[in-house]
Design a protein around this nucleic acid. Structure first.
Lengths: 200, 200
DNA sequence: TTTTTGGTTGAACAATCAATCAAGTCGGGT
DNA sequence: ACCCGACTTGATTGATTGTTCAACCAAAAA
């Protein structure tokens, strides 16, 4: 089932879907970038949508090595891990002149009537991301209010990331990203103060 | 410059771009829905992108009558106005089976390399929305900390709206929207408590 | 050696896309 | 009556889209 060609197609599609979006990426875009011919592509994938599915499956399977490990390198504190993760997206925005946002979020809003398999894969990718952040919150449970809804807060942090990217990219102004993160930081500070009051 | 035909095209395009997105909406989609012929459309608009520009200009010019007036009907309290606005999007999600999210946000993430005029119009729409929320925060200034960055908080609330819609639509679960709003509500409550401490 | 399997090549296809344009309609102004 | 400009009609264009397919290749299996 695996092959170098198949993998090359997926890697290229990951990048093209990220920068140009799904609809604006044509099969011939993928073919010319990979130096693969159409017959080969259709030997591995029944159609364009199946390339998208393979891309989303790759994101799903590689969230650790492709995202978290890199963002959390040298960061131990679970709360700082959250901001390190956000900072990874910030760096992407800056180093690519606001071209690379969140690949999953872009697809989520671009595909309006997605195939159920596609919708579920996007959802799965979101949930994996939320799981990771929720893990950080669990690790820092002793610093937050005892009755905190950690799941809801983790979903909230995904929201901040997506919304901050959307606004910073549209305005082409990293200040929008930074201010969003700053408000989140203030919220977490308030929660931690609450816990201190509980403890005393 | 105005005409019934031109207006019919814009209204139809607003709806189609909202539901299907820009790239997935073809000129012939617009033509068949409006019963207008291609020559007429191209008499008013140099190209497809100019239809998009007219749509974004309409959103920009009609934010009051098209959005705020309706959402704030019978709501006086400025803080409640914020949640009434969010609740409008929630209702849209529910009554359209998660088909209608935020028309501007969808376009913002779908168009990856937009024409500068398009990018600026999307930005202008976001800023108008933020202005409206910032106005609420100004009206409720006596309930929030004196040194609150109201602009940043208004941008933050736009982020919540966009991210909550994105997640709820993807999961097809209104709980994601509600939990996001609930965390925001908790944050505003904490801020208001801060102010009470300042006053006492 | 022959067959099979997994993969490649690249021309070709039908459909759809945004856009064009010459011809026509119609009402108001002169 | 005449013209003019605004608008409409709808066939047509050329480019691009996703997809198909028969021929081809190489290496392993029989």
């Amino acid at each position: 089932m695996n092959s170098a060609t198949r993998d090359k197609i997926i890697r290229t599609a990951m990048d093209l879907f990220w920068v140009k979006g799904y609809n604006s990426t044509s099969i011939s875009d993928i073919l010319s970038r990979t130096q693969v011919h159409s017959g080969s592509l259709y030997h591995f994938f029944p159609g364009k949508q199946d390339v998208l599915i393979a891309v989303l499956e790759t994101y799903r399977d590689e969230i650790d090595v492709g995202l978290l490990d890199h963002a959390w390198e040298g960061v131990e504190d679970p709360v700082q891990k959250i901001f390190a993760l956000l900072n990874g997206y910030r760096t992407h925005l800056l180093t690519t002149d606001y071209q690379y946002g969140c690949p999953i979020g872009s697809l989520a809003l671009e595909l309006h009537e997605p195939d159920p398999r596609v919708r579920e894969l996007i959802d799965r990718n979101f949930r994996n991301w939320v799981d990771a952040v929720e893990g950080c919150l669990v690790d820092a449970a002793d610093r937050f209010p005892r009755d905190l809804d950690r799941r809801a807060l983790a979903e909230f942090i995904l929201t901040i990331m997506e919304g901050a990217i959307m606004q910073a990219r549209t305005a082409q102004d990293i200040g929008l990203f930074d201010r969003n993160v700053e408000v989140l930081r203030e919220h977490l500070n308030l929660l931690m103060k609450q816990r201190e009051m509980q403890d005393s």
